[in-house]
Write a protein that binds this DNA or RNA. Structure first.
Length: 673
DNA sequence: ATCCTCCCCTAC
DNA sequence: TAAGGTAGGGGAGGAT
């Protein structure tokens, strides 16, 4: 399986974020030029640079040759100069390519060559991005008798299609836009990669980890010179004029406003000010009616979560055709109607009939995140990355050196972030991370707020407990049972009582939080404690072999992630989601996990887990102990724990890992100079 | 007391 | 149709 986001993990520094090593690229280009000298036939693809995505007909090698023969360029990776993505099948299109480059079927190339001139690629679009004002080509699923089930005219072979399609396509491009119906489950060998390429949660998770790692690297190699800070100080002239507030520790919390939506609106400024949501589904109504399966599952869901109001309302009023695609992000206009992140699109559309959906743009999110982190890193490396769109920054030094007041600094840095990223953000300031975070909540959207020490106590008493980080729906329900809804309520209740209800630690933390106290300092270095990979979507095995095969893929995935971190592990946990005994076999949500029991089993030993095969075999053993029929599996995960740095070089793996981390270290140091 | 396993909860 | 991941904190209860 191809590794993902390698550009990030191996990045040597800011200057190359989001790009590829120039040396590598030019080598590829050169290789290509050599080949093109030999076989030049025409120049029809002058100015065209393609990147092939997935399996195509003709295959990538052939397309590479054709491009060479006809004046075009072939890119192994997608570069900024890539003009077209070539792809045969809709399922293999990677969403991350969709932001900017047209995804075109290979017939565009073969047929252009046949005609001896370049055809307008828009007739061969596999998929259109909303932001591009091109004629929209809709996929039509043709429900035909079974004879045509596997015939997909998307994959027209070049020799056949040339004569048949070119003319008719020009007049009626929709005719070739046909795919056969295919439901992709984890039984498909490509499922894992495809799923990850489309999973927002996977993206959020992996990006978060990558920014944490990157901030560490930047901090390690930094020489102490901050261009942004120096420039800012210079505009202020004499900086010895310190203000009172500049002597205390000031923590800043930065959070982009409805991040995914803001990135999406960059290419759709016409939608600014309208209710917008990011989701996979385009429409809030589905073609198929699933009323029967839904009514039972929703009833069970309410039964199970009856005491948690927020959970039950999640599926309230959803009929059999309401889309259960989840909203990843929604604009403030949509929130005014009650739309929330994570809500099903069908439900959101009930609340907000004018809701407009935009597709994901994973590549765009990365670009904006890179710019955000670069911007802040030009002022300080006292950064704790929280996620791709959120971080804590210790501003104490910046304020001292520049002589700015908190509000001046906030205005400046927010202006710069907005100018550079094209996206609005909010900042909150306080004496600790909790105060900074609560200040951001007040600041949003597109604002700034400083929660000053002298008002903290008063300020906190009105804050609803749901605003506290760490207090989710379960804790909230427990607190509500105690009659507590605000921080003020907690301030006057007994620690003992809270601890007996919530546990010793959580109770203690809550009492602190209610007073605005946060004892946790910013965390600049975080040691990994676990590595896991899990899939709880699309899990439908028809045979044990299918499950073994998937488990093996998952084992490789998680082991590769372990190698990436350079750590070793001695403990493995298999996590299963198993259809609850009374839950319907068909879930309310298409290929969702439905209502499940969660099971896990752990094995640990003094032996290092030394290969993906070991992972697989251990997981297999654990599965057999868990006694869950493969047909009832709805989710599978593998987690590795008891991680350690490979200090002991007593085996081949240890030597390999030490060598690997030394190489990584050299790369980083080599860049500093 | 402290650790281990099997959970649950939370956040992005 | 839809893409419900992943890491950390921590509690309950049993083993050491």
């Amino acid at each position: 399986m191809g590794r993902r986001k390698k550009d990030f993990n191996t990045s040597d520094g800011f200057e190359e974020w989001g790009g590829y090593k120039k040396a590598k690229v030019s080598k590829l280009d050169e290789q290509f030029k050599d080949e093109s000298k030999i076989v030049k036939i025409s120049d029809i693809f002058q100015g065209v640079a393609i990147m092939v995505n997935g399996i195509t007909r003709p295959p990538a090698d052939e397309l590479k040759k054709l491009m060479a023969q006809h004046g075009g360029v072939y890119h192994m990776y997608q570069l900024s100069s890539t003009t077209h993505i070539i792809c045969s099948n809709l399922p293999t299109v990677k969403i991350r390519n969709m932001g900017t480059k047209p995804v075109v079927k290979p017939a565009w190339i073969t047929e252009s060559i046949s005609l001896g001139k370049i055809i307008d690629f828009r007739r061969y679009l596999l998929y259109t991005h909303q932001s591009i004002s091109q004629p929209r080509l809709d996929f039509k699923v043709i429900d035909k008798p079974s004879t045509s089930m596997n015939q997909s005219t998307t994959n027209i072979s070049p020799e056949k299609s040339t004569k048949i399609c070119v003319e008719s396509e020009v007049k009626s491009p929709k005719k070739i836009e046909v795919t056969s119906r295919s439901t992709k489950t984890a039984s498909d060998p490509n499922f894992l990669e495809e799923f990850y390429n489309n999973s927002r949660l996977h993206l959020i998770s992996t990006l978060g980890a990558e920014y944490k790692q990157l901030v560490c690297q930047i901090r390690d190699k930094h020489d102490g010179f901050f261009l942004g800070r120096k420039k800012l100080a210079a505009t202020r002239g004499n900086t010895t004029n310190m203000q009172q507030e500049n002597r205390e520790t000031v923590i800043m919390h930065i959070d982009m406003d409805c991040f995914f939506v803001s990135v999406g609106l960059k290419s759709r400024p016409d939608l600014i000010g309208k209710p917008v949501a990011i989701a996979h589904a385009r429409t809030a109504r589905t073609a198929n009616d699933n009323t029967e399966n839904r009514s039972l599952e929703f009833a069970m869901y309410e039964e199970r979560n009856g005491n948690i109001a927020a959970g039950a309302s999640r599926v309230a009023n959803l009929d059999g055709r309401a889309s259960m695609s989840e909203i990843a992000s929604c604009s403030y206009e949509a929130r005014k109607c009650g739309v929330k992140n994570g809500m099903f699109l069908g439900r959101a559309a009930q609340l907000c009939p004018d809701l407009i959906t935009l597709p994901y743009d994973f590549e765009g999110y990365k670009e904006v995140s890179n710019l955000l982190y670069q911007t802040i890193a030009s002022y300080t490396v006292d950064i704790e990355a929280v996620s791709c769109d959120e971080m804590y920054v210790d501003c104490t030094e910046i304020l001292r050196e520049t002589g700015l007041s908190v509000s001046e600094w906030a205005t400046h840095v927010r202006g710069e972030i907005t100018a550079i990223t094209g996206c609005p953000c909010s900042t909150g300031f306080g004496a600790n991370r909790l105060q900074a975070r609560l200040a951001t909540r007040k600041a949003k959207p597109n604002g700034q707020f400083h929660l000053k020490a002298d008002i903290v106590e008063d300020y906190m008493s009105d804050i609803p407990l749901s605003d506290l980080p760490g207090v989710g729906r379960a804790t909230l329900a427990k607190l509500a049972n105690l009659g507590l809804t605000t921080c003020g309520d907690v301030q006057i209740s007994s620690l003992k009582c809270l601890q007996s209800e919530l546990g010793a630690k959580v109770g203690e933390t809550l009492v602190d939080q209610a007073k605005g106290i946060d004892k946790k300092p910013l965390n600049y270095y975080q040691e990994r404690k676990s590595i896991s990979a899990e899939i709880n979507y699309g899990i439908r095995f028809k045979s044990l072999e299918e499950f073994w095969s998937f488990l093996q893929t998952l084992s490789h995935e998680v082991y590769n992630r372990l190698l990436d971190t350079g750590m070793r592990s001695r403990c493995l946990t298999l996590k299963l989601m198993v259809r609850a005994a009374t839950a319907p076999v068909e879930t309310a949500k298409f290929l969702g996990h439905g209502i499940c029991d969660n099971l896990s089993k752990t094995t640990s030993s003094n032996q290092i887990i030394g290969s993906a095969d070991v992972v697989f075999n251990e997981a297999k053993v654990l599965y057999e102990k868990l006694n869950a029929p493969f047909c009832d599996l709805r989710g599978v995960g593998i987690q590795l724990t008891k991680l350690e740095k490979p200090g002991n070089v007593d085996n081949a793996l240890g030597k390999f890992l030490v060598k690997k981390s030394e190489e990584a270290g050299r790369k980083i140091r080599g860049k500093v100079r």
